[in-house]
Design a protein around this nucleic acid. Structure first.
Lengths: 259, 259
DNA sequence: CAAGTATAGATTGTTGACAATCGAAACTGG
DNA sequence: CCAGTTTCGATTGTCAACAATCTATACTTG
């Protein structure tokens, strides 16, 4: 392995003078792995070897271990005893459950929001959607995807229930695990227009409509990711047939990034 | 501290001879602490000292540490850096959020259940409620409280969404933290009649009614716990003047299993 | 040649000791 | 007598080495 998919530049590593210990290191490791998953630099199923991560990040193995445990709690990595950690893989059934759960919780959030939101927060929502649109139109796809996901978290936050907000945040963070193809061809981010419609439905105090729009929006996203997933598996299958009997020659060689 | 509130009998400790290492130890530690919270043997805010737990349980400090991290993620203990772990304390606002979250999720579960439940599962629900009633009438209050909480988890399980079931389970496990008075006077467990009514509403495919009944049931429980909490704080305040050491001579013969 | 098996390398899990940090009691000076 | 400071015990956080376990390769044998 020439370079880790997590820590690519020296800048990412700890500053040469500070050894970076403590919860700071752990938090940074978690952050870096989450970002790598978000940007599809690592594929689900990829093994996460503690010592490699420790060397690459400059942190101790203990910090890595704690970080991996935290990520496992969030559902982003799977820990099997004596076998190590790997990026979590979501079965189609799990994917369905995740979207169903999001619909249940976000529906409640949006309905409540339609009844209680103030003018200031409404303006903040509109500004957010505008930022999304701008990022999209300027071709900053990474930012657009990030903001697009963040939008749903923002809705939950505004609804004022920290418990449910935490659940929503975790579920949204797992989204990159649902389709594990790289979004090169076309950016898979929530349609900006849908977000705008939802905000306007909230603005007109029509909770039912806002909830319905959000649900359809999520269902559409689920279908898209399902199609992507199917395409990726199809591609993988044909690649396996062409490669010969050795199916996982891909992992041994370089980074487990699908490119 | 003469004896730990967690590990009181030698039977609770590791079997003499087997050093009990690995994830087994961690899981057992988690189990034991959860049960102690459930039975109100420890009060919210109580400090959890790693070395004490390690000695009392016979597990290593690392296992204790991992267990505490897991409990912290479940919201049962609070971890503050360099200051250690303590049983979590729920503010009144958090309590409200927990119940609101339960209402949101359980409402969805119950509605779905009313539409899809089969005859076999219905029978299982009825048998469960019957077990509850029996435990209550025979004065097995520990079992009754346990079954009473378990009922709501069962509803979530039957709805078929593991993500939401996990959330519900965590939220219900936090219930003993909401009112931290000892349930000596009268068992605070969900009214059995309410559960029966909910099951019958589900049986008649009336999801709206079942959801409404469950919501009112939860609201009533929230009010009860709130009142208990207020009483406990009042009692605590007056007990501060006169020294009142709690006699923890309470014996729990057999603790219910906690998932 | 195939199938099962021994072996070696790599990786995780655990332990105990050490360093960093915190809280509180004792101490000092005004 | 009180405020501030210092010191000390206790507790958490970190680390590196060791033991247990797994995976994959090479090997033996029918």
């Amino acid at each position: 392995m020439a370079v880790s998919p997590f820590f690519r530049s020296q800048k990412d590593r700890a500053p040469a003078g500070a050894a970076m210990s403590g919860p700071e290191a752990e938090h940074r490791v978690v952050q870096v792995i989450v970002e790598a998953i978000m940007d599809h630099r690592v594929a689900p199923g990829a093994r996460l070897i503690e010592r490699e991560l420790a060397i690459a990040s400059g942190a101790s193995r203990s910090a890595i271990r704690n970080g991996l445990m935290r990520l496992a709690h969030a559902g982003l990595v799977e820990l099997s005893p004596n076998k190590g950690a790997s990026i979590a893989m979501c079965s189609p059934d799990e994917a369905r459950q995740i979207f169903d759960a999001r619909i249940v919780i976000e529906t409640a959030a949006v309905k409540k929001l339609a009844g209680t939101i103030g003018e200031g927060e409404l303006e903040r929502l509109r500004a957010f959607v505008e930022d999304e649109r701008e990022a999209y139109e300027r071709g900053r796809m990474e930012d657009a995807r990030h903001l697009s996901r963040r939008f749903h978290v923002l809705l939950a936050e505004m609804a004022g229930n920290d418990v449910l907000t935490g659940v929503i945040r975790d579920l949204i963070n797992r989204q990159p695990l649902l389709s594990w193809s790289r979004p090169e061809t076309e950016p898979r981010f929530c349609g900006n227009h849908a977000h705008s419609e939802i905000v306007e439905a909230i603005a007109s105090r029509d909770g039912e409509r806002a909830a319905h729009l959000n649900m359809e929006h999520l269902r559409a996203l689920e279908r898209e990711l399902g199609a992507e997933r199917a395409a990726a598996m199809q591609e993988l299958r044909s690649a396996q047939a062409a490669d010969g009997p050795d199916g996982n020659a891909r992992q041994a060689d370089e980074s487990p990034v699908v490119d």
